[in-house]
């Protein structure tokens, strides 16, 4: 076994995903299979190989620090599930 049900539950908590018991069972089996498959990468010696995070070799992309237009408060809030004045409204953070 590459991954246990308890580990899958832990990962779901990290990912902020509420999973049903059935989903936990399915994902445990499927992730186990996929992780067993990706094990094949360990057959390759990658000692001293530089990891690639990005296909195009580039350093930081700088731009002048000048203010430009923005979409504005009303547009930003237009899709808010709940709003109050010019804020996004959410359930209580401190219980």
């Amino acid at each position: 076994m590459k991954i246990t049900r308890a580990e899958v539950e832990h990962v779901a908590r990290l990912a902020r995903l509420e999973l049903t018991d059935a989903e936990l069972d399915t994902f445990t089996g499927q992730m186990d299979g996929i992780l067993a498959y990706v094990e094949k990468l360990n057959a390759l010696d990658t000692e001293g190989i530089v990891p690639t995070s990005h296909a195009v070799p580039m350093e930081n992309a700088f731009r002048a620090d000048e203010p430009t237009g923005s979409i504005g408060v009303e547009n930003a809030l237009a899709n808010a599930p709940q709003r109050a004045e010019s804020f996004f409204r959410v359930p209580k953070v401190i219980e």
Partner: peptide
């Protein structure tokens, strides 16, 4: 073990 390893193999594929 997983993410960085995959990024290294990505270098080999490139």
């Amino acid at each position: 073990a997983y993410y960085v390893k995959a990024q290294k193999v990505r270098t080999l594929i490139m």
